[in-house]
Amino acid sequence: MPRIVLATHNPHKVEEFQAIVAEVRPDLDVVAYDGPEPVEDGVTFAANALIKARAAAAHTGLPALADDSGIAVDVLGGSPGVFSAYWAGHKKDSAANLELLLDQLSDVADPHRTAQFVSVIALVRSDGTEETIEGRWPGRLAVQPAGPGGFGYDPIFVPDGQPADAERTVGEWSAAEKNASSHRSRAFVALAPLLESL
C-alpha cells in the first residue's frame, strides 16, 4: 500500500485527514509525522502549508501532505486568517482564541458576521515537485458557541446552505457531516487527482 505522510502533530487533523483520504483514495496509507516541527513564518496559508510539507518530505523520504487553515472573517478584513491558531497569543489556546474573536464581533449584527474557513493543502512529492490547492467553506459566526463536537472555531461557525429553521454550528455536526463538507474536504477533493501518481 502506498504511503504518504501528513505533516502535522495535531491528532484532530490526522483523524480528519484519514477519514477524508479514505473516501477518495482508500488504498493510500496516511501516516502521522513524528519529526521536528518547522517554523511557520509564511504570511499566507499556501506558504505555511509548503513549509510543513517540505519538512515532512525531507524528514521521512515520503511524499507529504500538509494543511494550513484558519478562519477568515469578512468584517475583520480576512483576519484571523493565518494567525487563527494564535489569535489570542502564542499559546495556541483554542478557547481563548474563540472568546477573543466573539468579543471583537460583539457589536456586529448577524448579516455582517460572514466568514469562511479556508484550507490550503500542499503536496510535496518524492521527486520534489509541489502543488497547492485551496478549499473554502462559507458561512457566518454565531453569537455564542454551541455543540460539543469539532475543534477550534467549529462551535461558532454556521455553514451556509442549511435550512433557516434548523441551522447548526459545526460543533453540533457529526464528524462524518463535517468531513463531507469542510474546507479541508473541498481542498482534498480538488487535490485527489494529483495523488493518482503516488
Results as ranks from 00 to 15, higher is better:
108 V>N: 06
179 N>W: 00
51 I>W: 06
146 A>P: 00
67 D>W: 02
44 T>R: 10
141 L>N: 07
18 Q>A: 09
46 A>W: 01
17 F>H: 07
46 A>M: 00
48 N>G: 03
111 P>M: 02
75 V>N: 11
27 D>Q: 13
29 D>F: 09
159 P>L: 07
72 A>P: 02
124 V>A: 06
80 P>L: 05
176 A>Q: 13
24 V>Y: 15
92 K>Y: 09
135 G>V: 11
192 A>E: 11
113 R>Q: 05
181 S>E: 14
104 Q>A: 12
76 L>G: 07
35 G>W: 10
137 W>K: 04
61 G>H: 01
22 A>W: 05
101 L>K: 10
141 L>H: 03
33 Y>E: 08
139 G>M: 07
178 K>A: 03
126 S>M: 07
40 E>Y: 09
126 S>A: 15
4 I>E: 06
12 H>W: 01
79 S>K: 13
43 V>F: 09
150 G>F: 06
40 E>K: 04
95 A>F: 04
194 L>F: 13
15 E>C: 04
58 A>P: 00
161 G>Y: 01
175 A>S: 15
97 N>S: 09
69 S>F: 09
165 D>C: 00
165 D>V: 02
118 V>W: 08
110 D>A: 15
119 S>I: 02
173 W>T: 00
177 E>P: 09
81 G>C: 03
5 V>K: 01
163 P>H: 02
146 A>S: 12
30 V>D: 09
59 H>D: 15
182 S>D: 06
167 E>D: 08
159 P>T: 11
32 A>G: 11
166 A>L: 10
6 L>C: 11
142 A>L: 07
69 S>Q: 00
164 A>C: 03
76 L>C: 04
8 T>H: 03
100 L>H: 11
45 F>Q: 04
49 A>Y: 07
110 D>V: 12
166 A>R: 13
128 G>Y: 10
28 L>T: 10
38 P>H: 09
21 V>S: 12
20 I>V: 15
14 V>Y: 03
160 D>F: 07
149 G>I: 02
185 S>K: 08
114 T>Q: 10
27 D>I: 01
177 E>D: 14
50 L>D: 06
71 I>S: 07
131 E>M: 11
191 L>N: 06
33 Y>K: 00
159 P>H: 02
34 D>G: 15
61 G>Q: 01
148 P>I: 02
37 E>L: 03
83 F>E: 14
106 S>I: 02
73 V>L: 03
114 T>K: 03
111 P>Q: 08
91 K>D: 15
188 F>L: 13
23 E>I: 13
141 L>Y: 06
103 D>M: 12
59 H>A: 15
160 D>T: 12
18 Q>E: 14
35 G>M: 11
